[in-house]
């Protein structure tokens, strides 16, 4: 029973990583760049939701708000966070990454790092460096087997959200017109342009979707571990990037699988081996997997042409 509860913690943590990794992997697949600022967009999403909830709590809700009202506020805060992050993602892409479309990948990487520094320091100036205590968007827990197994509603919500997002994205990239354009751009940008696809608009759209996902992940992450500060997003960002690579970067089911596995490994390692070394164990597994399967679990193997 103990194992089961650790497993569920792992799956819900993994779902958060998976949502972040989906954003990473889509941007990587289409723009061929490592967006190091993705983790900081998560943090921005967390802050927006935090302030919306505080604002609503002070001004709109009464002393003892009904469950429906709190739920509505939570929903609105998530939607607003998504809206802000979407705009932020598109603006970042337009101002910082688009001028470098033809430049080498390292130049774009360093610019992304610059954007990440910018977001962290801007957040520190705007919101202060002190950690904020985030109220989880849903409280309470499910008690099973006569109290032996407790699952918080946040964990359930996270898992459900992740599955819905994954299925939605798979359908979107597979069926819709925009999704097809995205796949075309990731296959061959030049050829896609020749076929009349607006590459810049497609890449903007990818950033918009990725950043909206980051906002959702931000709210869920802060509900999972309720400490919000300007550096909140960086470590989960790195781990989600690891998850994306683990599953095969550029592949949507890969990011899902990678994120889930990473979360489970982390939770189990923390519970049974060592809290201090849980990140090391996670990274060690990544290294072993990449050595056996150099393009990730579900990545496409691209043979080199001479």
């Amino acid at each position: 029973m103990e194992f089961l509860s650790y497993l569920i913690t792992g799956i819900s943590l993994g779902s958060i990583y998976a949502i972040i990794a989906l954003g990473y992997t889509m941007v990587y697949g289409i723009a061929k760049m490592l967006n190091f600022a993705h983790g900081d967009v998560i943090m921005v999403g967390g802050y927006v939701s935090f302030y919306v909830t505080i604002f609503a709590g002070n001004n709109l809700l009464g002393e003892d708000p009904s469950a429906l009202a709190t739920g509505a506020v939570a929903l609105v805060s998530v939607l607003l966070a998504m809206a802000v992050c979407t705009v932020l993602g598109v603006v970042i892409e337009g101002l910082a990454y688009r001028p470098l479309r033809q430049a080498g990948s390292l130049a774009v990487l360093i610019t992304a790092i610059g954007v990440s520094y910018f977001l962290q320091n801007a957040a520190q100036l705007l919101f202060g460096a002190n950690p904020k205590n985030f109220t989880p968007i849903v409280s309470g827990q499910l008690t099973l087997f006569g109290g032996q197994l407790r699952i918080s509603y946040v964990a359930l919500l996270t898992i459900v959200a992740c599955v819905v997002i994954m299925l939605g994205l798979t359908a979107f990239t597979g069926k819709s017109r925009m999704g097809k354009a995205m796949r075309a751009c990731s296959e061959d940008r030049g050829a896609a342009q020749l076929m009349g696809i607006n590459v810049n608009a497609t890449i903007s759209m990818t950033f918009a979707i990725g950043s909206a996902l980051a906002a959702v992940a931000g709210v869920l992450l802060c509900s999972y571990s309720p400490v919000l500060q300007p550096t909140t997003g960086s470590m989960p960002g790195i781990k989600a990037f690891t998850a994306a690579v683990f599953g095969g970067i550029g592949s949507i089911p890969g990011a899902f699988l990678g994120g889930l596995l990473l979360g489970i490994i982390e939770a189990l390692a923390q519970a049974y081996i060592s809290t201090q070394l849980s990140n090391s164990i996670l990274f060690a597994v990544l290294i072993v997997v990449l050595l056996v399967k150099p393009s990730g679990l579900l990545g496409k193997y691209v043979p080199e042409k001479v």
């Binding site: 990037f241 201090q276 090391s280 393009s295």
Partner: peptide
């Protein structure tokens, strides 16, 4: 092990090793 990989995969593995070294020394 690292130099068998290429490109971004190599980058992520060097990142992983850096974090492992940090944790072990910790």
């Amino acid at each position: 092990p690292v130099l068998r990989l290429r490109g971004d995969y190599l980058a992520i593995v060097t990142l992983a090793f850096g974090e492992i070294i940090k944790d072990l020394i910790n």
